[in-house]
């Protein structure tokens, strides 16, 4: 119990953020027309590409003689970018089609 409370104190900011974000995620999504499920999934997919930031940090901290970190970091940056850029572009393509119908 005590260790639990200590770690709660140590990570108070994180725990607040965690709980609030979970609730926010639920609230934001809970009333969505089925029409938008696919673009929404795709958009959310692009947003979790934020993991790219971690890849950039790995890459940026790699020592020039640490080839494993350099190579893995470089690979991670590419993969993360694919997730972000591909995700946003695909979502935009889907949504572009919704736009067009308005001209009718």
């Amino acid at each position: 119990m005590e260790t639990l409370l200590t770690s709660l104190t140590n990570h108070a900011d994180f725990i607040f953020l965690l709980i609030l974000m979970i609730i926010l995620g639920f609230e934001v999504i809970s009333r969505v027309p089925a029409v938008l499920h696919t673009p929404l999934m795709s958009g959310a997919n692009a947003i979790h590409g934020v993991v790219i930031i971690g890849a950039i940090i790995v890459m940026g901290q790699a020592e020039s003689d640490n080839y494993l970190a350099l190579i893995l970091g470089f690979l991670a940056v590419i993969l993360g970018t694919l997730n972000v850029v591909g995700g946003f572009v695909v979502t935009d393509r889907m949504l572009e089609m919704f736009k067009k119908r308005k001209k009718n």
């Binding site: 953020l17 965690l18 974000m21 995620g25 639920f26 999504i29 809970s30 947003i47 934020v50």
Partner: peptide, 25 residues
């Protein structure tokens, strides 16, 4: 988890948001 590792707020918010919203979806 990556966000927690680097104590990186934007990774945390983005990650948790998608984790939660994705579950609802």
């Amino acid at each position: 988890f990556g966000g927690f590792l680097y104590d990186n707020s934007v990774m945390l918010t983005g990650g948790i948001l998608v984790g939660s919203a994705g579950t609802v979806l």
